[in-house]
């Protein structure tokens, strides 16, 4: 009896410690913000323009444009210019907006003043990354900008990802607005 029970006890002990360490690690890993790259900007642009992205163009922001951007985002916008890629009526924008603490990098393709594609490229927040899934991003397909600079359709939120959802909606409105003004300047 003694010879059989001894090895059994030792075997259990050897597995308890790693298990505890694993649980301990998991408990502390929940809040660690990590950078997740779902698609590089380069690959997004290649997809958007059938592997032949046009040369980037630059939109220099006037005071009026900046004021409108700040109205859409709800905070100060620091950059003096924004780069974009345009081919005919299609344009691609790679924009960033902070969800809670860190910026989310999002790619947009706008075609004829409506959103054709929305893709979360890099997510750096500790939570709320559900916004990267197609079940959420496809809601934006076909969305246009109303006169009051809101989207012409409601976007269903995700429980626990409110700030990330808000960031995507704001940047979607921004992409549509920027597409509109760069289109106007060409006419």
């Amino acid at each position: 009896m003694t010879t059989l029970s001894q090895p059994t006890r030792r075997w259990q002990g050897q597995n308890t410690l790693p298990l505890l360490l694993l649980l301990f690690g998991l408990a502390f890993s929940q809040n660690l913000p990590a950078e997740s790259v779902y698609q590089t900007p380069e690959s997004f642009l290649a997809d958007a323009f059938n592997n032949q992205p046009p040369a980037p163009e630059m939109l220099w922001l006037t005071e009026e444009t900046k004021a409108t951007i700040e109205r859409i985002l709800g905070h100060r916008y620091a950059s003096l210019r924004i780069r974009y890629w345009r081919q005919g009526e299609r344009s691609a924008w790679i924009l960033e907006e902070i969800g809670k603490e860190r910026p989310i990098t999002i790619g947009f393709v706008v075609n004829n003043d409506t959103l054709e594609k929305v893709r979360v490229l890099v997510f750096r927040e500790s939570r709320g990354d559900e916004v990267r899934h197609p079940f959420f991003t496809t809601q934006f397909t076909g969305a246009a900008l109303r006169a009051d600079l809101a989207l012409d359709r409601p976007i269903d939120g995700i429980t626990g990802a409110t700030l990330s959802v808000r960031a995507l909606i704001k940047t979607a409105r921004l992409a549509l607005y920027l597409h509109r003004i760069t289109g106007q300047s060409r006419q």
């Binding site: 590089t40 900007p41 380069e42 690959s43 642009l45 980037p56 630059m58 620091a78 950059s79 003096l80 210019r81 924004i82 780069r83 790679i94 960033e96 990098t105």
Partner: peptide, 14 residues
Amino acid sequence: GELIDVILAGMGFA
């Protein structure tokens, strides 16, 4: 010190 522009890795160089 005004920010002109941000160039993300992957927007021209990888």
